[in-house]
Write a protein that binds this DNA or RNA. Structure first.
Length: 427
RNA sequence: GGGCCGGUGCCCGAGUGGCCAAAGGGAUCUGGCUGUAAACCAGACGGCUUAGCCUACGGGGGUUCAAAUCCCUCCCGGCCCA
């Protein structure tokens, strides 16, 4: 499979500084980089497309560089007003990089066996914290005019607003990113930067800086932003308003799987192309399946299984799928003990004494103690609205729950809403 | 440093002494329909021992029977001037 054709089929190319870059990538031997945010101990769904792109590159014989934005994370925003770039300490950054490194390893080959296309993980703190101010202003700043910088679409909206300003630090961000590209070109022979379409302005600053400072020609390529059918940015968690993380302890494999399984029909063609490595014919067949038999959700299943397998492994993917089936399609009371435990393996759990359950449990208190409701008032609301279930049976405020409810004599599966679970183990 | 404007619930935003737990929108949550979807419809959306009480309108202090609303002060943001 030729990379150019594959990427065009998948719609991965939004803009390029030089269309011929696709041919060079197809031929192999190109060193390319993408920046990642290291302010959390895990990457999230928003990075998945870029991760896949790096993987695709490497599979085609190119060398991927994952660049952690530790420099920018360390600086943060001095005006405190932007929550987007929280201040981060060097120790925390190091910790985060450990987790991120492991996640990258699922997509990229960092082993020496990969030869010249062995992946690299770098941290821009390495050069951003050591370059001197005068060097930076002379070598980087002199190549750009403020006039062109304020014309960038990325800062224009901020400059036009009359309630918030744009700090000099934030404004300088594009120069820092340009400098990254310069260092990677000089030190590692990197000639391509990838990113989302929102990165276009920053990327072109980089290609320009490299050309002016070294005379080398380097390229930029952006991928389209993945949007949901309703125009919202894709990647928010189903439960709450959180991001979908790649770390199993932050977003369980089950939750992750469910999130993808619930993707709306209109988004599946893009998800299949962006997030899976399925061949073209399989993708076209799945498109067709979505069109003609949407209720089977074959595409969603394929996406969920493929992505969870890639991120968490095959076993986790199988368990997640099985758990969903049991939870939504079968009677939970009829599962044998081992299957039941496997189904709720991802859910938080707590241990209660036999005596207190035998004495009878108030449903509202049950929800609060299982952390499925934030307060008694909220618990009351869920019960009133019919959003509380024990062992998949809807319960109300006056429902008396006692030891006779226990599955296998010692479990209560408490659920709030569609898919928020908690397991009570009776000791 | 000076002048002017502003800081309201998760976000945006109305409110300029009592009728304010605070309009409206968005987000979120629950239910209904359905395909564990989208769209749509209905309801909820600070807490509690819930016809009541407590906590909340940047922080602190004050005026008043009564303050998100008035006064003082501090902090933060924006615009302009130096």
């Amino acid at each position: 499979m030729i990379l150019r054709e594959d990427w065009q089929f998948r719609g991965l190319v939004h803009q390029t500084t030089d269309e011929a870059i696709l041919d060079r990538l197809s031929a192999g031997g190109v060193t390319a980089y993408i920046g990642f945010d290291p302010t959390a101990p895990s990457l999230h769904l928003g990075s998945l497309l870029q991760l896949c792109n790096l993987r695709r590159l490497q599979l085609a014989g190119n060398r991927p560089i994952a660049l952690a934005g530790g420099g920018t994370g360390l600086i943060g925003d001095p005006s405190f007003k932007a929550v987007e770039r929280p201040l981060i300490t060097e120790e925390l950054l190091e910790e985060n990089l450990v987790g991120i490194r492991e996640q990258l390893g699922r997509f990229l080959d960092f082993s020496p066996a990969a030869g010249p296309s062995k992946a690299l993980l770098l941290n821009n703190a390495q050069w951003l914290t050591t370059v001197t101010l005068t060097d930076f202003l002379r070598d980087v700043g002199k190549h750009f005019t403020v006039n062109q910088m304020i014309a960038k679409e990325s800062v224009k909206s901020r400059l036009d607003r009359d309630d918030v300003g744009l700090s000099f630090t934030e404004f300088s961000y594009m120069l820092l990113q340009a400098y990254d590209f310069l260092r990677l070109n000089v030190d590692h022979g990197c000639t391509l930067q990838l990113g989302g379409s929102d990165q276009w302005g920053n990327i072109t600053m980089g290609t320009e800086l490299v050309r002016k400072e070294t005379g080398n020609t380097v390229a930029g390529l952006t991928s389209p932003l993945l949007l949901r059918a309703d125009g919202q940015k894709f990647g928010k968690s189903e439960v709450g308003n959180d991001k979908v993380w790649l770390d199993a302890s932050m977003t369980s494999p089950f939750e992750f799987h469910q999130f993808l399984l619930n993707a709306d029909d209109a988004t599946t063609p893009a998800l299949l192309r962006f997030f899976t490595f399925l061949d073209h014919q399989t993708i076209l067949d799945l498109d067709e399946a979505t069109r003609t038999r949407p209720q089977e959700r074959q595409a969603q299943r394929a996406i969920a299984n493929a992505v969870v397998t890639l991120v968490h492994g095959e076993t986790a993917a199988r368990h997640a799928e099985r758990a969903g089936e049991a939870l939504f399609a079968e009677s939970i009371a009829e599962l044998d003990e081992a299957t039941l435990l496997q189904v709720v393996a991802d859910a938080p759990s707590s241990t209660w004494s036999r005596a207190e359950v035998a004495a009878g449990v108030d449903p509202a208190e049950l929800l609060v103690r299982c952390e499925l409701a934030g307060s008694k008032g909220e618990a009351g609301r869920f019960l009133e609205q019919g959003g509380a279930y024990v062992n998949n049976v809807r319960v109300h405020a006056e429902t008396a729950i006692d030891i006779s409810w226990a599955l296998h004599g010692r479990y209560l599966v408490v659920r709030r809403g569609r898919r928020l679970l908690h397991l009570v183990v009776i000791a």
